[in-house]
């Protein structure tokens, strides 16, 4: 049959669900091994964060779509969590290979890293379903859950979300072409506008780089 937009969207959803069917709701044995290799084991904080963000996501989803859809929000969040653990494992494997390191204590105890990675995973799920937002599952096309909605839900700075996108795409080879285009669109939205909003961490980074440049340009004192 010719590929209609709805059929294409449905196949993307089915593909996502198929990929995530084999993923787990909790960290895999390989992830647990990485956690155990850390100077400070991040496992408890990771599980606590996933649980607390689920409550927040479910509440915001229900507020946006309708109280009757809270369970749908919970299901979407759970798919996002599976993708989050799956991508985290893939990222750590590639970083281990690239850096010949097994102790990722600093990265795995970084709250912003985990919140950004989980937000990206949930955004992939939301965008996949969003393309097929129809009356059938109760979410109306008018409810705009599209990016950057997830940033507000997780109270996440756009530039921190931006930092995980490329590594996320590299770590998840089964992302569809449409999804990669969507994430690229998110990048452009962030770089062209969201990252320049007041309070963005980008301004601090620019300030630090300017300070480094000015220090590098200062002549050395004669004693040196």
């Amino acid at each position: 049959h010719p590929q209609t937009p709805v059929r294409a969207a449905m196949s993307n959803i089915q593909q996502l669900i198929m990929i995530l069917n084999s993923a787990t709701d909790t960290p895999s044995d390989i992830l647990i091994t990485y956690f155990n290799n850390c100077t400070v084991n991040p496992k408890d904080s990771i599980l606590k964060r996933v649980e607390s963000l689920e409550h927040i996501f479910k509440k915001k989803f229900a507020e946006a779509v309708g109280q009757g859809c809270a369970e749908i929000g919970s299901q979407r969040y759970k798919l996002g969590v599976r993708l989050y653990y799956r991508v985290m494992e893939s990222m750590l494997k590639s970083e281990e290979e690239r850096l010949s390191v097994q102790n990722f204590s600093k990265l795995l105890n970084d709250n912003i890293f985990h919140t950004s990675l989980l937000a990206c995973a949930v955004e992939v799920v939301m965008a996949t379903y969003g393309r097929n937002a129809s009356q059938s599952d109760g979410t109306s096309a008018e409810t705009d859950l599209s990016f950057p909605w997830i940033l507000n839900v997780f109270d996440l700075k756009a530039f921190d979300f931006y930092k995980v996108i490329e590594s996320f795409i590299k770590a998840e080879p089964s992302l569809t072409r449409e999804m990669i285009k969507h994430l690229q669109h998110c990048e452009h939205q962030i770089l062209e506008s969201l990252a320049w909003q007041s309070g963005s961490p980008l301004f601090e980074l620019i300030k630090q780089s300017k300070e480094r440049e000015s220090q590098a340009e200062q002549p050395e004192p004669p004693s040196a």
Binding site: M91, S94, E95, R98, L99, V101, F104, K106, L107, D110, I112, F113, K163, V164, E166, S167, I169, K170, P173, L175, R177, I180, K181, L183, Q184
Partner: peptide, 21 residues
């Protein structure tokens, strides 16, 4: 992913982006 413009250098990854190198 061919359409995606990868910007990280060879020696860069998620660890550098979160200052964990």
């Amino acid at each position: 992913a061919q359409d995606y413009h990868f910007g990280l250098e060879e020696g860069e990854g998620i660890s550098e982006l979160f200052d964990c190198d």
